[in-house]
Every structure is written in structure tokens, then in C-alpha cells.
Design a protein around this nucleic acid. Structure first.
Lengths: 340, 340
DNA sequence: CTGAAAGCGCTTACAG
DNA sequence: CTGAAAGCGCTTACAG
């Protein structure tokens, strides 16, 4: 590797000062047009690489934004990230990504690393059990935080997520409308706000239809395709003989349908199944999945915008911003028919 | 936010010099045990945050490693990334991730950003059409590059990927062994080394079995579940009435099976389908997918190790390191039976 | 075992 | 419109 090119290299080669070079490269109107062009030309010719660390040490702005979610391999988060990426790209921010796999430790390490790098802000879907201090750590060191997909009690941060309780009630009502009565709820956990809200939405919908809530019809836990697949056997063996399942998300629903099919029953005919999220693969599963659109793209876009606005000084109101979910009716749900 | 705590803050509060503080925090043996403990204690008490930008400006090592692949939402890359993450985590490196979506521009912007941040190295799955200069740009500025999943002609970089030609021949031979003769190849592109190698492996396997290669049985393009799903109609309408399909990857295969099922045929019985990659979802699709394990985890792990080794000065040999693929036989392939 | 001083490569008032 | 100088917060020889 050749001699390192820096501002002073360019300055000397042109007989100017580093101040002028610096200003020119950042398109300051303080530099004459001719000079600016000459400087940019020379920078290109020499293969100059801007040293952001030096700049950011001086300005205390790094252009780095951190994003930490449960698992980027989960397409639900993937779709949120894609929207965030699109939004940040156009503002020339670099984003640093991490999974926390619901480990509070891993999440804290990430926040600390981000602070060390001088991150300008962080978008997070907080890990289960995140202590308030960990979020405060960011804020107190001048790094604003925005929450996505999950809320946190006791902090007043801008939070963008779907209206889970309403969304799950759409799915539950849809099944009730088709004549189902023994409706199981599969997946999710009480440890997240999302989990509690969805279960509550399901319970409320049943109540409104005067259907007794049977706690044994709740199968908590599964959040993945594998989880849904494995839950199928247990689901089918329930003595209540449920004819429908409200699933935690599309992955669980698709896994469950595969499990049901493997057991010789036909999903959408013998067993009605709803998903949640409306992932890209929901419409092409077999049968195509009736689900609830959860507005991931909107969540990501709004969260990124909110953070960028904050960095520019304009202060969006704090608190929870709920995205309205929408029903997507496809082939995985059908009229009630009793189990053989 | 309170007063910024820096080394000198700690130094003054303890009546020591910043040099001592710096050494103590990094566990230098030059500092007495008692002093070190006192310093660490005080750093914690004051809520000191290490400024990596300042340190890296001085040492010209940032602890940042960049990773750029086609699309992190594709589980194939997701599995590679997960392995890289695991490996880098234990060496306390931060990794910056980006998709290039096969845009050479986006990829170059990423490399430039990484250089500006003083990245220590980069792991990349090069975008289609990547010019050699873009990779050289990294190397010439002291940022070693490692390639994964795709090779590049004309550069002598360490490259980790599966043996595609051999892998696809395993799948093709398996179908031939079941009695299939009209075997289509669905998906992929001649624009990547992987695409060319896989097609070649398929052609070679047919030749070896004295089966004439029919160019019309190749349906290039699809790389996603959606793509496989959409290809199903065309595939089923081919006048050669193929009874089997070697798919570009698991996603295409699963999409195709869904499309085949939607058309009223039974995948694994009427139409045999093989995938590639052995993603987690391959074993739980309906029917479970016969596929080729592509060693993603191994690719990611080895690539990360190779980069870390290089950063520590030991020089692994350059060139292509092929991971041996393995056949996974499941339910999506069955004995030949003529199409109705 | 600890300290004083220089320097990493920028940007930003301040002069002119 | 351009330049000289200070300083961002570290680390690293060099002294003692």
C-alpha cells in the first residue's frame, strides 16, 4: 500500500492550506469554484480517502446508526430492516446491525460498542427483560433511541409498532365468522408486550362472541416455522378438537400447516389457520395463508425517519405510534366443519 | 447529558497521568495491580466510555469488519452471516453489514465507507460484474478482502465456497438413479461463477448417463421462492413433459413445489424436485425437500477465521477453498413415473 | 512503575 | 476567498 494520502498531501501538492481543501471537499461556498474543482480533481487523482474517524473526533458526529433486533434471519425483522436501510441510505448514514437473540448482555455490549464508535443514534427492538438503564445509557450519552416492534414499560421513547391486540382480533373474528368455536392460539410469549397484547386481543374477541376461553387451547412458545411444525402433533391431539388456529406469526402458521398436512389433514379445509405479518411467502405458501398485514415496511420507514428528524433537531412526540393492521384473506381458512 | 468523561477526567480525579490510565484500562503489565484496580473502579464509577475513534486514529486499527452480500434476507446468506457473526464476536470485532443487491455501485459505496471508517477487513460475496479495481481499492488501502460463496476471475484472494459443480451433479445423479430422464434445471444465472458451475455440473451428469442435454429444459432466472412458484406453470407446460427438476436452491424448489401442488400435482410423487443449500426450512417443507448441503456455516466460519488470521499476520494461502457438498435425501424425490 | 509530550487527520473559529 | 493554529481523545515512544 502506497503512502497514505491525507488533506495535507493534497494541500502541499497544490500549494494551498488544509483548511481550504477541507472546505472544498465538503462543497463550502467559502471556496471559489475554480479552486474547488481543482481540489476535487486532485483528490480523485491521488486516490484520497476521507478519514471519518478524524473528522468525527473533531465534530463528534459519526454518521453511524445502530440497529439491533431479535434476529435478522427472521423475515419479519428482515422486512423492517430493509425499510430502515432504504431510508438511511438516502441520508448517507452507515448502519451497524446486530442480533441480540433476546440476550440482554449481547444487547448491552452492542449499545456500548455503538457509543464507543460515536454512534449518532440507535433503533432497537428491545430484548426480553431489557433494564431501563440500558436504554438510558444510550440517551444519557447523547445517542437517541427509537423502539420498533416491541414497547418497553416505563420509558418514554418514540415507539413504532403494529396494533397487536386489534390485529389479532381481526384474525380471531374472521375465524368466528366462518363458524369456528374451538380456536387455538399457537405461539408467542407473555414476556414481550407484543405477546401479551396478542393474547389479550384473542381473548377479547372470543369474549365478544360469547365463546368461553379455554386456557388449554393456548399453546405458548413457538415463534418459528420449526416451532409451528412441531406444535402440530400436540395441536391435533387436543381433546377439544380445535378446528382452527390463530398463529403467532406467518412462520408458525406455515410450519403448522406443513405439520397438519404431514398428518394427513388438509389445511384450509379440515383445519383453518391464520398467520400474522403477511410476509412475502404468505401469499405463495400451500395453501396461501390468510393473515394480518403488520405494516413492517411502515414501521421501519417511520422509525428511521423519526430518528433522522431527531438528529436534525426536530422533535417528534415521544410515545407509542401504532400502525393499523389489515386482514388478508386467502385459502388457509374455510368454513367450519367438525373434526372426524 | 452530563460532562463528557475522558481519560484526563479520570487522570485528574486520581492524580495520575492519562498514560497510566490508558495502560491500566487495557490491562498493561506496566501498571501496578493496585493502581489498575483503582483506575478501573473509578472509570466504572464515572461512567467512562472509551472513545474508539480517538484510539483508532492513533493506532489505525478500528476493530471494524465489513461484510457485504447479495441480500441478507435470503436465508442462504443469513446462515453464512450467522457463522461469521459467531466467529467475529469472540474476537471482539464489530461487524458492519450491507446488501449490494448485485449493484456494483452500492457495493463500491460500501467499500469506500468502510475505508473511511478505517475498517480492518472485508468479507464479500461480490456483486455480479464487480470490476477488479473495486476489490483492489480495498487491498491497496490496507484492508484485506476475503470472498465467500462466489469467486472472481483474475483476483487471487482467499475464496470460500461450496463445490457447486460437484454438488449439483449429486442431485442430478440422484434423479437419474430414480429413473428420470427429462430433468429440467430451474433458476440461476450465467452471470455468476456459481451459476455457470452449477449448470455445468448438471450438463456433465447428464452426459455421463448418456442423456441428451435439451437446452429448452433449462429455465434460467429464478432465485427466490416467488420465482420458483411462478416458474411452475411454465415448467409444467413444457412439451418434453419433464418429470423432475433440479432447482437452483431450496427457495426455488419450495416455491416450485407450491406451484406444482397448486396445479393439482403431487410433488415427490408426480414431480421430483431437488433443492440446493439445505436451509433449515428444507426439512420441514411439504413434502420434505431432497437437497444438497452447501456448508454455509462452514463457509462463514472459515472465511471469518481466514480474515482474523490475516489480521494477526499469518497468511493463509490465497485461492479457492472448496467446501464439499453432501446429498440429503428426503421426500420430494421419488421413482420415475410418466406424466399423465 | 509513572509522567510529559508529540501526533494520528480532520474541522472550526479567527485573521487577514 | 485563503491561511495559521488550536483541539477533538486517545496511544506510544522516551525519560526518569
Amino acid at each position: 500500500m502506497a503512502q497514505k494520502i491525507k488533506l495535507s498531501t493534497i494541500a502541499e501538492s497544490l500549494g494551498l492550506s488544509t483548511a481550504t481543501i477541507s472546505l472544498a471537499l465538503r462543497d463550502s461556498p467559502l471556496v471559489a469554484n475554480d479552486t474547488r474543482e481543482k481540489i476535487k480533481e486532485q483528490a480523485r487523482a491521488l486516490g484520497y480517502i476521507y478519514n471519518r474517524r478524524a473528522a468525527s473526533l473533531r465534530t463528534s458526529r459519526s454518521g453511524i446508526i445502530g440497529v439491533v433486533v431479535h434476529d435478522i434471519m427472521n423475515p419479519f425483522y428482515g422486512e423492517i430492516l430493509k425499510a430502515i436501510e432504504t431510508e438511511l441510505d438516502r441520508s448517507r448514514h452507515t448502519f451497524i446491525l446486530s442480533n441480540h437473540y433476546d440476550s440482554v448482555e449481547k444487547q448491552r455490549t452492542f449499545i456500548e460498542t455503538l457509543l464507543q464508535l460515536g454512534g449518532d443514534g440507535v433503533i432497537m427492538s428491545p430484548a426480553i427483560g431489557t433494564p431501563i438503564e440500558d436504554v438510558r445509557l444510550a440517551e444519557q450519552n447523547g445517542m437517541p433511541a427509537i423502539l420498533v416492534a416491541r414497547s418497553m414499560e416505563g420509558v418514554d421513547l418514540p415507539t413504532y409498532r403494529g396494533d397487536d391486540s386489534y390485529g389479532i382480533s381481526l384474525a380471531t373474528n374472521h375465524l368466528i365468522g366462518l363458524g369456528h368455536r374451538a380456536i387455538a392460539m399457537i405461539g408467542g410469549t407473555d414476556q414481550t408486550s407484543t405477546g401479551r397484547d396478542r393474547y389479550q386481543g384473542y381473548v377479547d374477541a372470543l369474549h365478544r362472541a360469547n365463546i368461553e376461553v379455554d386456557a388449554n387451547l393456548r399453546i405458548p412458545g413457538p415463534r418459528t416455522m420449526q416451532g409451528g411444525f412441531e406444535a402440530a402433533v400436540y395441536f391435533l391431539s387436543l381433546p377439544q378438537k380445535p378446528t382452527a388456529a390463530v398463529c403467532w406469526n406467518d412462520l408458525v402458521a406455515i410450519g403448522l400447516m406443513n405439520g397438519v398436512a404431514r398428518a394427513g389433514l388438509v389445511p384450509g379445509v379440515d383445519i383453518s389457520v391464520t398467520g400474522y405479518d403477511d410476509l412475502e411467502q404468505a401469499s405463495i405458501s400451500t395453501p396461501s395463508l390468510t393473515t394480518v398485514s403488520n405494516g413492517q415496511a411502515e414501521v421501519g420507514r417511520l422509525a428511521a425517519r423519526a430518528l433522522l428528524d431527531r438528529l436534525e433537531g426536530s422533535h417528534e412526540p415521544d410515545g407509542i405510534h401504532l400502525i393499523k393492521p389489515e386482514m388478508r384473506i386467502r385459502q388457509s381458512t374455510g368454513l367450519y366443519r367438525p373434526r372426524a
